[in-house]
Design a protein around this nucleic acid. Structure first.
Length: 766
DNA sequence: GCTGATGGCGTTTTT
DNA sequence: CGCCATCAGC
């Protein structure tokens, strides 16, 4: 502990020691950002600052946990546990639970997740009898979210000329109205969405100077990680909290700001020095992660951006290899090249599967790589996709718990009032919802109010069914304040009969649903175990307080297994791998986003590419396929990424282009991918290209020499070939075994034809 | 209520 | 091209 300062380089050490006053730490990729942050906190503690006076904010639970762990190693569990450390949302959620009265919310308010919000917006659009084809739910949600992130309340929204003009131009003049109703319905349901946690914190501090003062004095030292990712609401909270003591330290890297689509404002970090003119600026420029070549290549790329804090990231590691650029004819070949390369490295270099990462722009791009990895029996894990808490069965179970704790939670009620099916149909639910709307109350208040129910005029059967539902929930309520969360949750699951839906089925899906419910129960058990003391019985309400803020980003089940990582570049931020493949790099990072970038978007795409490159420690490989077009299909007139040419060529490999499938592409000229297949109607051109493609499949390119594509891929590629060869023919489906299949092709003039495919050799059968 | 057809639409993701 | 949501129809 006493020599912890020796474990830092000069800049890091000064940054750690500059504890007083505002401080901006610009941390280049791989420069030991987390290290500085944790040591800084340790140093604060060592110099006598009390742990409860320190607030440290992160963006993900994972980052918070990681930091907590590392601080505990430095200063011990005791002190580390007394720090206020966590995500923005979780910390301000905690504060709002305490100060709820100031905002007129009950302390057991529900947190609506994205699905709840979406369903609420949908129901409002329906109430207003608007066309949901015009009023696109996702668009409305992002407008509302954007407004909240910028602290624009519904009233302000509706009086803001610019916002209204935009909505009018988009033929959605009533978004302001939807926003108002959304806010009202959330209130009636005693619910906050994710954005509300930040918005209401701002309102709390704005309207209650005494409360603000209390927290300003509690948090004498404020530290923020990933500052480049803060949005306006977060920015303002931090600013207010730090106003009195001015001990605000933000850490981040403007070159890694890649979340503007969800409200992040790179300006926050760029303008920090304007907000705090006396701020001390530290630049962590030594990269401890990557070879010189990777660092230089990344620098040469990011240098092209106008808006940035200039810095000179350098590495003292070996020069290392140049960045490899590999082109392939098809995405299948691309994945074979990459996987073949991984395979060869594992065989030759004695490295592990977990040393490799395949990074792409969109989740959909993982498919071909998954298949290629499976063919080779290489273990892989794929990040992204549905998270545990978003699964239907888990959400259903939690909805029961939510409704038990907060009766007014309309979204929970809607979800389970007829689940498992108890004969309460949609019509009934809509009638209740309307009555709730008219009465400005929650749906629960309607169904538990005999007069209201009478007024709607349900028949006996329906009334009985609704009453049975009420009784079920009421029976939980009796115990929810005394029985511990585990037992309570078990009682709810059993009595609600959720498991019956899946029990006894031998469908794998149903099995996994049961397992997920068990997993949820174990999670609640863990919560109880972690919070149990003699004087404190952890209740269900306590578990629910945070459950919406939990994600399973770092899943225990996949952690530690030796496997290749497949993920989007976005989710790779903060990680590092010896070998990184940045794949699918044609047409920029996002296949359909050709030449649509505004200057800002272009710079963010460049930063994204920068993030991808700087994940690599030993070697980075960029690959792209010449056949990928916007939505599948075969098209050859694809320009290679405009971003590859932003890298200084001296850091790129000059690979042999002997096979025509490898090597550095020719930039800026039509010689690359000049054949116009897919656009042409000339069958000869198409079949020439198709023959070429077949050639590719028969003769694997240099990097994949010795690797024979599996029959399935040949057939799959075969389908593409067929499509190309016969021009207007449409491959309807494939039949038969992998190595000998039939392709059913529909020809507009000749009708259906069956073609036999044997190892990609074609034979017309019918 | 469930199933098949049909049509529309399509980044990145944490909380 | 495929996946999803939605809806008609049993």
């Amino acid at each position: 502990m006493e020599n912890y300062l020796d474990q830092l380089n000069d800049v890091q050490r000064t940054a750690v020691q500059a504890t007083q006053g505002p401080c901006l730490i610009v941390a280049g990729a791989g420069s030991g950002k987390t290290r500085v942050l944790t040591y800084r906190i340790a140093h604060l503690l060592a110099t006598g600052v009390k742990p409860w006076n320190i607030l440290a904010l992160t963006f993900t639970n994972k980052a918070a946990r990681e930091m907590q762990k590392r601080i505990a190693q430095l200063v011990g569990e005791q002190d580390a546990a007394k720090l206020t450390m966590g995500t923005f949302h979780s910390i301000f959620n905690q504060i709002l639970r305490v100060e709820h009265e100031r905002l007129g919310f009950p302390s057991a308010y529900t947190i609506y997740d994205t699905a709840d919000s979406k369903s609420l917006v949908k129901s409002i659009v329906k109430d207003l009898r608007l066309d949901d084809k015009v009023y696109k739910i996702n668009h409305i949600m992002s407008r509302i979210s954007m407004a909240k992130n910028n602290l624009v309340t519904a009233e302000v929204y509706r009086t803001n000329a610019e916002l209204m003009a935009t909505d009018n131009a988009n033929r959605m003049p009533l978004i302001g109205e939807i926003y108002s109703r959304y806010v009202a319905r959330c209130r009636q349901s005693a619910a906050m969405d994710f954005d509300d946690l930040l918005l209401y914190t701002n309102i709390l501090f704005r309207d209650n100077p005494d409360v603000l003062d209390k927290y300003q004095n509690k948090f004498k030292y404020v530290l923020v990680d990933e500052y480049q990712d803060t949005n306006y609401a977060q920015y303002l909270i931090i600013k207010k909290l730090a106003q009195q003591h001015q001990n605000i330290c933000v850490v981040g890297d403007d070159a890694q700001s890649i979340y503007s689509f969800r409200g992040a404002k790179i300006e926050n970090i760029l303008n920090f020095r304007n907000d705090y003119p006396q701020c001390k600026l530290f630049k962590l420029e030594q990269n401890y992660r990557s070879t010189q070549n990777i660092v230089s290549a990344a620098n040469s790329l990011i240098k092209k951006n106008e808006h940035q804090i200039p810095k000179d990231v350098f590495s003292e590691k070996d020069e290392g290899e140049p960045i490899r650029v590999m082109a392939a004819m098809t995405e299948i070949e691309e994945s074979y090249n990459v996987v073949g390369d991984i395979f060869a490295k594992i065989a030759n270099l004695h490295c592990h599967y977990s040393d490799f990462a395949v990074l792409y722009r969109t989740n959909a791009q993982s498919r071909t790589f998954e298949e290629a990895l499976r063919k080779r029996n290489i273990a892989y894990k794929i990040y992204g996709g549905q998270s545990f808490y978003q699964r239907k069965e888990v959400k259903d179970a939690i909805a029961y718990m939510r409704l038990t704790v907060n009766h007014n939670d309309d979204e929970a009620l809607r979800r389970i009032i007829n689940y498992p099916a108890r004969g309460i149909g949609e019509t009934t639910v809509e009638k209740i919802a309307h009555a709730a709307f008219d009465g400005k109350c929650s749906m629960w208040s309607v169904i538990t109010n005999p007069m209201a129910m009478e007024a709607i005029g349900f028949n006996k059967g329906t009334t009985a069914k609704v009453n049975a539902f009420i009784e079920l929930i009421e029976s939980f309520v009796a115990n929810v304040g005394t029985v511990n969360a585990s037992d309570m949750a078990r009682e709810i699951i059993d009595r609600a009969g959720i498991k019956n839906e899946y029990q006894g089925s031998d469908d794998v899906e149903d099995r996994s649903r049961l397992e997920n419910i068990e997993e949820l129960m174990r999670g609640i058990d863990d919560y109880v175990a972690a919070n149990y003391t003699e004087s404190n019985t952890p209740l269900l309400a306590g578990f629910l307080e945070n459950v919406a803020l939990i994600t399973d980003q770092d899943n225990k089940r996949t952690e530690g297994t030796d496997s290749v990582t497949l993920m989007t570049i976005h989710s790779a931020k903060g990680l590092e791998f010896p070998y990184v493949y940045i794949v699918g790099m044609e047409e920029g990072l996002f296949p359909s986003a050709m030449s649509v970038y505004s200057q800002h978007e272009l710079e963010e795409e460049r930063r994204l590419f920068y993030v991808a490159l700087t994940r690599a420690m030993q070697q980075a490989t960029i690959t792209f396929s010449r056949s990928r077009s916007k939505y599948g299909g075969a098209r050859e007139s694809v320009t290679p990424s405009r971003f590859i040419k932003d890298i200084d060529p001296q850091y790129l490999s000059q690979m042999s282009s002997g096979t025509g499938t490898m090597g550095r592409p020719t930039f800026g000229s039509s010689s690359f991918g000049s054949s116009s297949f897919g656009q042409t109607k000339a069958p000869m051109g198409a079949s020439f290209a198709a023959r070429q493609r077949l050639q590719q499949l028969r003769q694997p390119s240099a990097s994949s020499a010795g690797i024979v594509p599996s029959p399935i891929d040949k057939v799959r590629a075969g389908a593409t070939v067929l499509h190309s060869m016969f021009g207007q023919g449409k491959v309807l489906r494939m039949e038969g075994e992998a190595d000998s299949r039939a392709a059913i092709i529909f020809f507009p003039k000749a009708g259906e034809k069956k073609l036999l495919l044997k190892f990609a050799k074609l034979q017309v059968v019918d």
